[in-house]
Nucleic acid binder design. Structure first.
Lengths: 215, 215
DNA sequence: TAGATTGTTAATCGATTAACAATC
DNA sequence: TAGATTGTTAATCGATTAACAATC
């Protein structure tokens, strides 16, 4: 996808959604052009880094002018693949699964949740934000027949590995894992991204107790 | 907190919760000692890195033996500050806020959610996992009188900044931010950690569309 | 003791920053 | 054109890896 097909480091990938968010905000504020200096200052980066980052993907600026906010925003959407629609299923209709189904931000970014599954008979058949909860036993057929891009795992750790293997077998492309463990599918091409909420609050705790004073 | 009071890089801090999780798993499996080589292999790191990481905090191993799993686990809990209890309030009783209140993992790690707030009159007074939703107007008094460590923001972006300022004013120590923006409180000592769920799914999307084949 | 494995120093690698020629 | 700002190369900085003496 990147013009010069060089290696893109994780550090760069981590910044891409941030650029996307800041550019969105600039658009909302009616700002149409921005320099690497100005953008970097808002984001707490250096101007060099901003230019280096963008140039991994081909350079979207113009000397003497800077960057056009709208087209840079579009380019980054393309790089991230969020210019395309994604079909998403959520496995685990507990509180977190239901919260994701109700989260408007995902729809906005093209992530369409088209089904919600659970193994609990008490949940199957209930309706969450317009989706009727289906039984886990229906996952295999559903994935095979509905061009599912991403499976979201909001199930307990103990169930994550077999479920990931099932999804892999059905030909899913990506897994968004909320179980508190590092999922791995050796030999598989399925992309796994984990949202480790408890890692995040532990880092907060670390900083609370090892405060480096910024005042 | 660290023995040799040297600077701890973000890269190290990010690995600490992972070490904690892997050690937890070793305990669950009845493994009582482990070498840096074995631990690094399980985690996809190098043995050198594992030893360097631990030695930032003083070195918990023994030559010829390795590390005692249980005591290393305890040491990392101390470093992370999760050997202590934290009083947590959740602001925003929508789906995500409710999901967090119901999430058993936080209690397990010592994060006690002691109150839940919302501004919506339809939610105020309802009960979520034993907690009665309180009005936003009660936040100030509550924080001042209840030794609140952490405020969790599960509110829309537009409300995050004023709420963060209010919490800062009331003397809160940390904010766990779920709003899709980078919160900043210039001049404040409040520690802010953001859990950017949409950044995470965007990174997944990036990898789906720029796949580096691992098969 | 001999073997294993740490703690730690030195070497390497890669990411960030600085500098500046190219150019709009 | 002159001024501004990029794209890109070179320099620096910091994190990771390698190596090995210390020591259990």
């Amino acid at each position: 996808m990147n013009n010069r097909n060089d290696y893109i480091s994780d550090a760069v990938i981590r910044r891409l959604p941030r650029y996307y968010r800041y550019l969105e905000e600039l658009i909302d504020n009616g700002i149409t052009r921005i320099s690497s200096g100005e953008l970097s200052e808002r984001m707490g980066l250096t101007a060099s880094q901003v230019r280096q980052d963008f140039n991994h993907f081909g350079g979207f600026g113009q000397q003497g002018y800077g960057y056009n906010v709208e087209s840079l925003h579009e380019e980054i959407a393309k790089i991230l693949g969020i210019d395309k629609l994604h079909n998403v299923i959520v496995i685990g209709a507990g509180h977190l699964g239901q919260a994701l189904v109700n989260y408007p931000n995902f729809i906005k970014r093209g992530f369409h949740i088209i089904a919600l599954f659970d193994k609990d008979p008490a949940l199957i058949g209930t309706v969450v934000n317009g989706l009727t909860v289906m039984a886990d036993s229906e996952i295999e057929d559903f994935v095979k027949n509905n061009n599912v891009d991403i499976g979201v795992l909001t199930i307990p750790k103990s169930e994550a590995v077999p479920m990931a293997k099932l999804l892999d077998k059905c030909g899913i492309k990506g897994i968004w894992n909320f179980a508190s463990m590092d999922l791995e599918l050796p030999g598989s091409n399925v992309v796994i991204e984990s949202a480790h909420l408890s890692d995040s609050i532990m880092r907060l705790s670390y900083r609370l107790h090892n405060q480096t004073d910024h005042s």
